[in-house]
Design a protein around this nucleic acid. Structure first.
Lengths: 199, 199
DNA sequence: CCTACCGATCGGTAGG
DNA sequence: CCTACCGATCGGTAGG
């Protein structure tokens, strides 16, 4: 009889991913050693290698899980039958909410993806494109002049991602402006800005 | 012959900084070895250590020189007697222009600064604050409702930096939207967005 | 033959 | 200004 998979296998995997993401973000991918990660997880290095065949696989799973959580967070939180403007606002709020407690993963996604082999990079970039498309479509619906073929849709969409994806460098939890406040601010800036561009 | 040694010294230093910045950005700070950098510069490792006592000093100089060039580029390019709105637009265009051919330094500034000792970090952060203040003041002048004490000035200013500092991840030279076009787009979005926020 | 896990240590390479 | 070489530590793997 084959030895069954440990009951807490998935739990342990998740815990390893979270700990290693924090160590990678804090010390950088190279300086965070597999020994440190094992120690931080309270497991032996050999057990760490049982869960992840190598360091790159750890990196891949961190980014993949993070992107999946962003996409899920955004897709589940919104009601696509809402008016386009409210829909975009909900997308932005959901994305900012999905970023809560995910600064480490966010930094790793932005900075370390290129270490991975091309096919793994492509798998992750496809998820990024999926997320971008959701937002671009919502913008195009809210500001129809930007839709279908306008050269402005891409730079406008990227401007929104710039605002939202840059927040981790200045936003502080518990400050005078909440996460939800900033969702309103960024959406208002983007929508009114985009309208005056299109007009 | 006027001080040929000094001139040669500065040239070599600049070349070393540029080469090492590119290697750091491409492979990461840890994986880009001092031997690689020496080889890329066409000098011996020992000569490299003659110019820079250690790897961290190289990192510090890359970021310091980069920030000085951004500040200088922005301060020299604008005419502060212009109307506030045109002034902000010129600031944004000058900053985007200063970022040309500086993607490597930009990435290093954002991602590797925390490796440095606290006093060196502080020296660099003071330069960052100086740059942010220039833009925040221009925004406050162009949209007076945001000035003096408004909780919105900081998130609005950070939204502009988000748009501009994020551009290196999607902007491609020679594409349909030029660097100058994007300066117009980002400024228009920010100004009209900020006005509707304040109103 | 599978998976779960340990103590010990490998060959190579880094900054200096 | 170079080559040779160091102390340390890395990612990854051995037997059981």
């Amino acid at each position: 009889m084959a030895r069954p998979r440990a009951e807490d296998y998935d739990e342990k995997r998740k815990a390893i991913l979270k700990t290693s993401a924090e160590l990678f973000a804090e010390h950088g991918f190279d300086r965070a050693s597999m020994s440190q990660i094992a120690q931080g997880c309270g497991v032996s290095k050999a057990l760490l290698y049982h869960y992840y065949t190598n360091k790159d696989q750890l990196l891949f799973d961190i980014i993949r899980d993070h992107l999946d959580e962003l996409i899920q967070g955004v897709e589940l939180a919104v009601d696509t039958s809402k008016p386009a403007e409210a829909l975009l606002r909900d997308y932005v709020a959901a994305l900012l909410e999905a970023y809560r407690d995910a600064n480490a993963e966010h930094k790793i996604q932005i900075n370390e993806m290129k270490r991975l082999p091309p096919d793994q990079q492509e798998e992750l970039k496809a998820r990024e494109r999926h997320l971008v498309r959701l937002f671009a479509d919502a913008i195009a619906k809210a500001v129809p002049e930007l839709g279908s073929g306008s050269l402005l849709l891409k730079p406008v969409t990227m401007s929104l991602f710039g605002m939202v994806n840059w927040h981790y460098l200045w936003f502080r939890e518990g400050g005078p402006v909440s996460r939800d406040d900033y969702a309103d601010i960024a959406t208002t800036i983007l929508l009114n800005g985009a309208r005056s561009l299109a007009g």
